[in-house]
């Protein structure tokens, strides 16, 4: 059981870069970028191929990130240069990446990494278990990713990017090239997703062309859990940390649900329902809040009538 939980924490940390990437597009740029489904596999495939060919695992991981950035560039160009709506641009990239990923994996749909040196081998060599090493390595990458994203969003360029997502008309009026902003956002976001994919492949011990299916929903679930549970208030740093915590929390929840006996094939349904419920949460809170305040007011009026009309209502009610 403990090992299952450790594994869940490790996997959550490795996924957290993808969640940070989705935060960049979904929250900062205000677009739902489906490229993620393909760019996470692209990262995994690039890392797997390089490691399989005897490449350095760290270099393979960075190459995964660069590949993700290229995928983001493609979506960004489809959206800004060809003026294709963002949702459709992401879907096109996602579909194209399916073929590209098979090409990257030298025509196969799966590359196993059994007994090969991965980025986690460094700490395993120092006597740690695989999960312990994955937790530490993943935690280090997640920490670096948080620091990088936090720093970037605070720079002039990052502020311009936030304005682009928040109010494009204002951004242009203040001299910001919103197309360039979106392009940069797509590139950085998918770079993070590719990095995540590269690390996940090394942890799972394989890259598979199907492994990205549903990843946008998983990242969104992590993002929303993070926001709702860990970042109801506070600044940007806290919001970014919440992305990592949300990713870990999601994996822990999934691990516990599996332990409780849910069939693995129901995972995607469960995740979709979780996201739907979480997206409804703000609306639900508003509705309940309204009802409560109405009830409170009616009660107050009945107890302390201010006008004759209130008195009438009190008697009737």
């Amino acid at each position: 059981m403990l090992n299952i939980l450790l594994g869940a924490v490790a996997l959550g940390l490795l996924w957290s870069m993808a969640t940070l990437g989705v935060y960049m597009t979904y929250r900062v740029l205000d677009v739902a970028d489906l490229t993620v489904e393909g760019s996470i596999v692209l990262g995994a495939s690039v890392a797997a191929v390089i490691i399989q060919q005897g490449g350095n695992p760290l270099k393979a991981t960075l190459a995964a990130m660069a590949a993700g950035m290229a995928a983001g560039l493609a979506t960004g160009l489809l959206h800004t240069l060809l003026k294709i709506p963002s949702l459709l641009a992401g879907i096109l990239s996602m579909i194209a990446l399916y073929s590209i990923n098979i090409r990257v994996m030298l025509g196969t749909s799966n590359i196993p990494l059994l007994r090969l040196r991965t980025v986690f081998s460094y700490l395993q060599g120092a006597g740690l278990s695989k999960n312990q090493s994955a937790m530490l390595t993943g935690g280090a990458f997640a920490g670096l990713a948080i620091a990088a994203v936090y720093w970037f969003l605070g720079t002039e360029l990052g502020c311009a990017l936030r304005a682009t997502g928040n109010s494009p008309q204002m951004a242009r009026a203040q001299g910001i090239d919103t197309d360039a902003g979106k392009l940069l956002g797509y590139v950085l976001a998918n770079g993070l997703v590719g990095l995540s994919g590269g690390l996940i492949a090394q942890y799972l011990g394989f890259s598979d062309v199907q492994m990205g299916s549903g990843s946008i929903v998983i990242a969104l679930a992590s993002l929303i859990i993070g926001e709702v549970v860990f970042a109801r208030s506070g600044g940007r740093l806290r919001a970014l940390c919440a992305m990592v915590l949300g990713s870990v929390a999601y994996r822990l929840i999934i691990a516990l649900v599996f332990e409780a006996g849910m069939p693995a094939t129901d995972l995607k349904l469960f995740t979709a329902l979780t996201v739907a419920a979480a997206l409804y949460l703000p609306t639900a809170k508003q509705q309940v809040g309204q009802k409560l305040s109405q009830r409170k007011e009616a009660k107050q009026r009945a107890e302390h009538p201010r006008t004759l009309q209130d008195l009438g209502k009190g008697h009737n009610g």
Partner: peptide, 10 residues
């Protein structure tokens, strides 16, 4: 506005 935006603090 009208200036190059770089990686200095915003």
């Amino acid at each position: 506005r009208g200036r190059r935006r770089g990686l200095c603090w915003g």
